[in-house]
Design a protein around this nucleic acid. Sequence first.
DNA 1: ACCTTTGGTTACCTTTTGAAACTAACCAGT
DNA 2: ACTGGTTAGTTTCAAAAGGTAACCAAAGGT
Lengths: 138, 138
Amino acid sequence: MKPGFIHETVVDFQLNTMKKSSVKFSPSDKCPVRTVLDRLGDKWSVLVILLLGAKGSVRFNHIQKEIGDVSQKMLTITLKSLEADGIVSRHVFAEVPIRVEYRLTERGESLLPHIQQLSDWAEENMRQILKDRKQYVA
Amino acid sequence: MKPGFIHETVVDFQLNTMKKSSVKFSPSDKCPVRTVLDRLGDKWSVLVILLLGAKGSVRFNHIQKEIGDVSQKMLTITLKSLEADGIVSRHVFAEVPIRVEYRLTERGESLLPHIQQLSDWAEENMRQILKDRKQYVA
DNA sequence: ACCTTTGGTTACCTTTTGAAACTAACCAGT
DNA sequence: ACTGGTTAGTTTCAAAAGGTAACCAAAGGT
C-alpha cells in the first residue's frame, strides 16, 4: 500500500438545507480510494447501481418503491451525486405527468460487475454471518 | 432481481451511548444483500478491511494512525462489528502495555479481493470522476 | 506516589439521515 | 372554476451516526 493511500482529512460540503447543490463532495484528491469509495460507502448508492444494472432505465418513483425504505430526499441526493460522478445519467421526458428516467452510464456499467460480485459474496455468506452475529455477545 | 431482494425496513439497534454491545446490527434477514452491504456502507469498514488485507496483523493504534482520521470510538465500533460478523479476529497479548492485534479471518480474506477490485476501479476512474464533479454545477 | 503506555469507554455536541408535510406543473372530471 | 390525482422533487424538524475530548484500567518504570 502506498504511503498516504488512506490518510486524508475528509471535508464534506453536504448542505443540510439542500439549498444549493445538495450533492455530496469530499474534496482533496490526495486519496484516490477514499474519494470514490466514500461515495459508494453511503447507504444507497450501491443499491441504486445494482437496481439500475438489473433493470436498465428506471423512473424516480420506481427506484424508490424497489428499494423500499429510501426517503425521497436521500434518493434525490444519491442520484444527483451519482450523476455528478458520471455513474448514472438523467433523462427528462416532457410528458404529463413529467417522467424522469435514470440509467447507468458507461462508467456505471464498468463499475457494476464489481458491485455485483460484492452482492454475490454477501448473498453467499449472509446466512453464516447472521448466525455469527447472534452468537457474538461480547 | 428477485422480488423483495432489496425491499426491507431496516431497524438499527446501534446504541448511541455504547452502553451494551456498541455493535451495529440491522436485523431482519429478508434481504441478504443489504444485511451485509449495510455494514460495508459505514464510513470505515472498507478501509479497515483493505488495511488488514495489505498489512496482515495490525495493532489498534496502528490502524488508527494509518487511516488517519478515524476516531477511537468509531474504530472500536467498526472493529467490534467486523468481529461480530466474523470478518476480522481480535488477538489480545497480555504484555505490558497490552497489545491487541487484528487480522482478517478466512471469511474476511474471501471478501478482500472484491473490495480490492472496487478500490482498483476507484483508482482507475478517480481522475476523470473528479473532473466530472467539478464540471457538474447543476 | 507518580508518570507512561495501550486500548479502550463515557458524556457531550455536531453533522448526516429519516419522516412527513409541502410545492410545482400539468391534466381529467364535474 | 374547483377538486382531485399524478410525478418529481423540496423543506422542516426530529433521530441517528459520527466526532471531540476527557477519563479509566492494568502494569511497569523511577
